[in-house]
């Protein structure tokens, strides 16, 4: 028989997990909030989602074909980036802006840094911030057929009262995928049950954020205010779906707590003291930049180290 046998180094078995599966799970988990967004904001929101996803996938494909690299769109990571980016765009975003965002996310943030796993910044968030800076008025205009007023967070910042129930369900103005706390948490539960994410980052993020606003908002333990802060803006989407992005969060367990707490504090600072009502995206991007440092200081101690006997 001789050469017919396969020879390779141990281990000889592999788990059934795969990158593609994980990405597919993320997409599935994002579906509730995506569907709610489309239901809430109408057909144009759907077009934005489809355009962005198509753009990210095609950009990756074309780039890889041109550079004669292995085509990796099958791992679905480009699709996840596209979907996340779309969910972070206002419902009335012109499609050409969505296309620009998608190209930027893949080409600049992901591919130029070496592709999946090499980017130090979440591509979707990188693209969102790029769009925010380049097309500020488009990106901060949340008016659409369904809603004409300000986003609830802006209203909250202006001292107006908000309807917390509507915010939790998601019947408010905002980006396509951020408004429904309910749908996002449902998706997050799916991811947690499937073992894709755990609560280390989102948990420490949300808890430290709450503590921060209790201490510094001047509203103390006002449940109405706290729930509005939690349900409003991109906090839930950011905490569960973007701060948990494998590539751009620390890999060490301790580091994940540090990172989560840092995000909570930064988001609090941006929301309470910054010029705009929102700050999740910027907080996460700044957090992304600090990841190497956090990892450096939170490397776990190897098993049995320090126990040396003479």
């Amino acid at each position: 028989m001789g050469n017919m046998l396969n020879v390779s180094s141990n281990p000889h078995i592999r788990s059934s997990e795969s990158t593609t599966k994980i990405m597919l799970y993320v997409i599935i988990a994002l579906l509730p909030t995506t569907c709610f967004g489309v239901y809430n904001f109408g057909l144009h929101a759907l077009l934005v989602v489809l355009t962005t996803v198509a753009t990210t996938v095609l950009t990756e494909l074309i780039y890889e074909l041109l550079m004669k690299k292995k085509v990796t769109i099958g791992d679905l990571s480009a699709a996840v980036t596209g979907l996340l980016l779309a969910l972070n765009l206002p419902p009335q975003t012109p499609l050409w802006v969505a296309v620009m965002g998608g190209v930027f996310a893949i080409l600049v943030v992901k591919m130029l840094f070496g592709g999946l796993g090499q980017n130090f910044m979440n591509p979707a968030l990188g693209a969102r911030c790029f769009l925010l800076i380049s097309f500020t008025s488009i990106m901060t205009n949340f008016e659409c057929d369904a809603y004409t007023g300000a986003t609830p967070l802006a209203a909250l910042k202006a001292g107006e009262s908000v309807n917390v129930m509507d915010m939790i369900i998601g019947r408010t103005a905002g980006t396509i995928g951020e408004t429904s706390m309910l749908a996002i948490v449902l998706g997050a539960c799916i991811l947690i049950l499937l073992g894709v994410i755990d609560l280390r980052v989102p948990g420490s993020y949300i808890v430290s954020f709450v503590i921060f606003i209790v201490l510094f908002s001047g509203k103390g333990l006002d449940p109405q205010y706290i729930s509005a802060q939690l349900a409003g803006g991109g906090l839930m989407l950011g905490a569960f779906f973007m701060a948990t992005d494998y590539v751009t969060r620390p890999i060490t367990k301790k580091g994940q707590y540090v990172y989560g707490i840092f995000l909570g504090i930064m988001t609090g600072i941006f929301r309470l003291f910054g010029p705009s009502a929102e700050g999740v995206s910027y907080a996460i991007i700044i957090g992304n930049l600090l990841v190497p440092l956090i990892e450096k200081f939170t490397t776990p101690k190897p098993f049995g180290k320090g126990g040396e006997r003479a």
């Binding site: 028989m1 001789g2 050469n3 046998l5 396969n6 020879v7 390779s8 180094s9 141990n10 281990p11 000889h12 078995i13």
Partner: peptide, 9 residues
């Protein structure tokens, strides 16, 4: 399967 040697022959 975790630590064994794959046989050639």
């Amino acid at each position: 399967p975790m630590m064994g040697f794959a046989l050639f022959d």
